[in-house]
Simulated scan of single mutants.
Amino acid sequence: MPAPNTAPYVVLDAFTQTPFKGNPAWIVLFPSSADVPSDETLHHIACEFGQDTAFVTLHPHANADLETATFGLRWFTPAVELKLCGHLTLATSSYLFQSGIVVKEVKQLRYETRAGILTAEKLADGKIELEFPGSGAAPVTHSVDIIIKAVKECLGHDVKVLSVNEGARDEFKRFALVEIDPSVDLGSIKAKPEVFAQFKQYELFIITKKSSVPSVDFESRVFGPNIGVDEDPVTGSAHCLLGPYWSDKLKVGSKPLNARQVSPRGGDLVVVWNKPKGTCLLRGNACPVAEGKISF
C-alpha cells in the first residue's frame, strides 16, 4: 500500500487574544499548487476537522518582492466552499507572519482567492489588517413579515425588529442583515438558528444592534444553517456589510468602529469603511492553539 500524502496544519483562534475564544481556524499548508489535492479531498479534510478550513499554497513568486509575499488561498466549511472568509484569512496571515515562512522584510501578504486579490498587513500594535470588499445595505422588499417572524422565533417573541436589509453588492446579496432594538441583551439569548434554514436565498443571517458598552460601537450574532454553520463565532465577511451599515447609520465616515460579536465564544475586531474605494479594513488578533499533520 503506497504511503499517504501528508500536509502540516495549524489551528489559531481568530479575532481574539485568548485561547478557546474567537473563531477557531484550521489551516492546511501546501508547498506548491502541484501538491494541492482534488476539491473532493479538500472537502473531506474540512469534514474530518469538522471546522472551517483554509488551504494555503505557497506560490513560486511568493518572496520575489522582499516587501510582498503572494499565496493561493481557498476556504471550505464541512458543507461548502466559501467565496470569502475573514477569520480564516486573518488567522492565516497571523501564522504566516509569526512562523518565519515569509522573510522579515515582508510588509504585505497578497492572496489569490475566489473573491479576487485580497491583502493583509501586520500593524505596529500586533493586529492583522485585512482589506476586503465591502457593501452597503439595501432594504429587503420581499418576505419581510416572514423574516421578522423567523427572527422572533430565533431570538424571542419580545424582540423588536427595526429593519430588514441585505447586501447591495452582488457578492453580498446572500447576506441578510437585521437590526434589532438596542435594549436587547443579544449575547445572553439561547438562539434557535435552524429557523433560518427556510430562506434558501440567504447564506448568512446577521443580527445586529447598537451596543450599550461604551467602548463598543455595535454588536452582532451571525447564523448560517444553509452553509452548515448554525452559528459562526466571529465572522469577518459579515463585518464587510456591518461596517458600512453602521458607518452610515452613525454618520462616522471612515472613522474606525469597534465591533463585538457576542456569540458564546465571542470576539472583537475593528472595522473601517472606505466608501469611495468600496473596501473594508478588518483589524484583529489571532492566537495559536494547536498544530499537527494530516494524511490524505
Rank of each mutant, 00 (worst) to 15 (best):
T68E: 12
A62L: 02
K293L: 11
L281S: 13
K152D: 10
G267Q: 08
E131C: 13
F97W: 04
F15Y: 14
E231H: 06
T77G: 07
S215E: 13
T68W: 01
A14K: 02
R265D: 13
T68K: 13
K107Y: 08
C240N: 02
T235L: 01
R169C: 06
D65K: 05
V11A: 14
T77L: 09
S93F: 01
I206T: 02
R221P: 04
V10M: 08
H61D: 15
V229C: 01
G126M: 08
T235N: 11
A124D: 15
V270H: 04
V213F: 00
T141P: 00
H142M: 08
P214I: 03
I147L: 13
H142N: 12
V106G: 07
R110Y: 05
S32T: 15
G126K: 09
F199C: 03
K277T: 14
T141M: 09
H142S: 08
T57R: 00
T53S: 10
G224K: 00
V216L: 02
V144Q: 10
T57Y: 01
L73V: 08
A3Q: 15
G266M: 08
G116H: 12
D248E: 13
E121S: 13
E166R: 14
P2C: 12
K152I: 13
L257M: 11
V229T: 07
H44G: 07
V216C: 06
V222H: 00
K149Y: 10
P60L: 04
H44E: 14
L241D: 06
V272A: 07
V36P: 01
D185I: 05
D39N: 14
V106S: 01
L73A: 04
N285I: 02
D125E: 12
A54E: 03
G116C: 07
L90E: 03
S212G: 06
H61Q: 10
K249I: 04
A46Y: 06
D13L: 03
A91R: 00
T41E: 15
F132N: 09
G292C: 03
L281D: 07
T89G: 01
E203N: 12
T18I: 15
S254M: 12
V103E: 15
T77S: 14
F15K: 04
V271C: 12
T57G: 02
S143F: 05
K160S: 13
P225R: 03
V229S: 03
N285L: 12
E231V: 06
F218C: 07
A259N: 09
